[in-house]
Simulated assay, not measured.
Amino acid sequence: MKLLLSIIVVAMLSITNSLTAQNNKITVTVVNATSDAGKIGYALYTKDNFMGIPVAGTNGKIVNGKSTIVFENIPAGEYAVICYHDKNNNDKMDFAKNRMPLEDYGASNNVMAFAPPTFENAKFVVKDKEVSLEIKF
């Protein structure tokens, strides 16, 4: 009987943990947009799809140089966020002929280099809580 009760308790805890894992939120705020023109495009990635098709993506309005969005119902795991200031509202990041970006961009953890962001530099962990990130361009 004790064994059966133990199995039921473990099963209930597993179900509860899997349900709460889907309720995780990631709040992302860009804190230093150079203007309120356009919008901020946000993309959420895993290691497997980094810089490809994102797990989730959205746009945020800019008010007084700040923009905040929330990714909801995110399973536990490792993620990275990349965002850019779409100043001209053309829904893509613009580049010069030499492939240098013409629009500001940033990534989670704010590691900036003269190269595209990497998953290792931008990754963070989502467990059973809300994650809040501030990104600087």
Rank of each mutant, 00 (worst) to 15 (best):
V28K: 04
L4I: 15
V31L: 10
G52N: 09
E120R: 02
F50T: 11
I62L: 07
V63W: 02
I26W: 00
V31Q: 10
H85Y: 00
V28M: 09
Y105D: 04
H85I: 00
S67H: 02
A96L: 10
I15W: 11
N89L: 13
A33N: 06
L13H: 08
N109M: 04
R99C: 07
I40K: 01
S67E: 03
K92P: 00
V131S: 00
A80H: 08
A122C: 12
I53H: 10
G41S: 12
K127W: 06
K87D: 12
P117E: 08
V9F: 13
I62M: 06
F71S: 02
V9R: 10
K25W: 00
E120A: 08
K39H: 09
K92M: 07
D94I: 06
F137S: 07
D86N: 06
A43R: 05
E130Y: 04
I74M: 02
N23K: 09
P116K: 11
V131F: 01
M1F: 15
F50K: 11
N73T: 01
F119K: 05
I40F: 05
P101W: 08
M1Q: 15
V9N: 09
A37K: 14
M100T: 14
V70Q: 05
F71I: 01
N121A: 15
M100P: 07
P75E: 02
V10K: 09
D104K: 13
M12V: 13
Y84I: 00
L3C: 10
M51W: 10
T34C: 07
L44E: 01
S108A: 07
V70A: 02
V70D: 06
Y105F: 12
F95A: 02
N32Y: 01
A113L: 15
E78S: 14
M12N: 12
K47W: 04
I8Y: 12
G57P: 00
F137Y: 13
C83V: 08
N64W: 06
V9W: 10
Y84P: 00
S6K: 11
H85D: 01
F119W: 08
A115L: 14
G41R: 06
F124K: 09
V31Y: 10
G60M: 01
G60V: 02
K2R: 15
